[in-house]
Nucleic acid binder design. Structure first.
Length: 425
DNA sequence: TCTGGGGTCCTAGGACCC
DNA sequence: TCTGGGGTCCTAGGACCC
């Protein structure tokens, strides 16, 4: 049996790097990228990391530090990041036989067989150079016999600069050396809760986890942790998935730019989320039967009374028609809404998906009539709104939307909008 | 006095990821 | 004053059945 070989390619400081691509004047400036609503820090350039800005901190907590060191902030510009991501991924698809796009800034490659033609480190370096040259984005490459180990190899490539950004972890010796150096929480799949529990069992390093008995781990933790133990020992349990599996749920939710206390505004917000979620659903060529609406106050506020509630409904039959979900969502909202709270966030979730035309109605249900005009209307809406966002919308979404999110520090859509292309003077 | 056991299905909640 | 959004999977426990 031939040995599996995976590579994990991960873009360095991806969002921050994207922001810098079109701002050469900021080459050595520390910058951070903020979450929606400019709430907290979700990406940092290497200069900002060095100055001690932590991942995930609320912006207001680091304002002083940022001012002191001249750290610049950007609102997240997903149009830009998604476009740059696609460029990186399509290059990778030309370089490796099989590619799994794992997230916006990382991909697993299947390198089984590649070592017959080329050294693995050499291959990794060429990936790095090609991406750098074609997109300006720097990536690190970790190579190993399992996905979990390739994640750790990538971590090593990022952490130690003398690796040149590529680490080949196919040798057992090197695996054990690296595992001994890393705390257990660096392992893919081991989060903060598991780290604490593992420590109670005397497991502090990745190597100690690798050396634990899988059956014992299964007993005291879960199959997932057992799988991780096996992966750390070079036994590949998590396969490469080239085809993205079909989604099982679609969520659209946002924290509000300002707290909502008025029901009409909440109706607008929920309407907006419904129409986004349904557009996404149609984009997936799916229909949904289950709808959930939820709303809540801020969990961080000490002086606001807490309130959090959600309610769901099953449709008679699957649909992707925005109007049907809008009507149901407004009914759910009526039963969830309590006047007097300062709402901080709300959202909707679609689930229980069917391929169009597959649903089997019950014996006493009305027969399904697919009106072509309904589908055409939705298609037309999507077409108009894809070309130019918010060309048309439902009246219930509201025109002013003063609850919508804050993005005060947004950079231009350099690569996806003709009028915002960078100019060379 | 003594009060079964095993199976399925569903849901809520928890944990993880980026 | 100000704390993201969108996912997946597993487990425990309750309801229900025979």
């Amino acid at each position: 049996m031939s040995q599996n070989i995976f590579a994990l390619v991960d873009c360095n400081n991806f969002y921050a790097s994207c922001e810098k691509l079109f701002r050469p004047d900021l080459a050595n400036t520390p910058i951070v990228v903020l979450s929606n609503n400019d709430g907290c820090v979700v990406a940092r350039s290497k200069e900002a990391k060095k100055l001690g800005v932590k991942m995930g901190v609320p912006l207001f907590q680091v304002r002083e530090l940022m001012q002191k060191h001249g750290i610049l902030a950007f609102s997240s510009n997903y149009a830009l990041y998604a476009d740059m991501s696609q460029r990186v991924m399509s290059i990778l698809e030309g370089l490796a036989p099989r590619v799994e796009v794992y997230s916006i800034d990382e991909a697993f490659l299947d390198l089984t067989g590649v070592s017959h033609c080329k050294g693995l480190t050499e291959f990794g370096l060429s990936v790095r150079q090609t991406i750098q040259k074609c997109t300006g984005i720097t990536v690190c490459v970790g190579i190993a016999p399992t996905k979990t180990l390739s994640k750790l190899a990538n971590h090593a490539a990022k952490t130690w600069h003398k690796t040149g950004g590529v680490v080949d972890l196919t040798s057992k010796d090197r695996q054990r050396k690296l595992l001994a150096l890393l705390p257990v929480n660096e392992v893919w799949g081991i989060g903060s809760k598991l780290t604490k529990r593992l420590q109670q069992f005397g497991i502090d390093t990745a190597l100690q986890l690798a050396d634990a008995d899988p059956k014992y781990i299964r007993q005291h933790f879960s199959v997932l942790v057992e799988r991780t133990v096996r992966e750390l020992n070079g036994e590949s349990c998590i396969a490469l998935e080239e085809m993205a599996p079909t989604k099982k749920q679609i969520i659209s939710s946002r924290a509000f730019g300002e707290r909502i206390t008025d029901k009409q505004q909440m109706r607008e917000a929920i309407s907006e989320y419904i129409s986004r979620a349904c557009k996404k659903l149609r984009g997936e060529q799916q229909q949904a039967k289950h709808l959930t609406v939820f709303l809540r106050t801020s969990p961080f506020s000490e002086k606001d009374a807490p309130y959090s509630a959600s309610k769901s409904v099953e449709l008679d039959r699957p649909s992707s028609d925005t109007r049907i979900f809008l009507a149901k969502a407004m009914q759910l909202l009526d039963s969830l809404w309590v006047t007097g709270y300062r709402y901080a966030k709300a959202g909707v979730m679609l689930a229980d998906f069917y391929d169009p035309g597959v649903y089997q109605p019950g014996l006493f249900d009305d027969p399904i009539v697919q009106r072509e005009s309904d589908q055409e209307l939705m298609q037309l809406m999507d077409k108009l709104n894809t070309k130019n966002a918010n060309t048309i919308w439902f009246a219930s979404q509201g025109a002013k939307q003063n609850w919508s999110m804050k993005r005060e520090l947004l950079s231009p859509a350099y690569t996806t909008n003709w009028s915002q292309l960078p100019k060379v003077k």
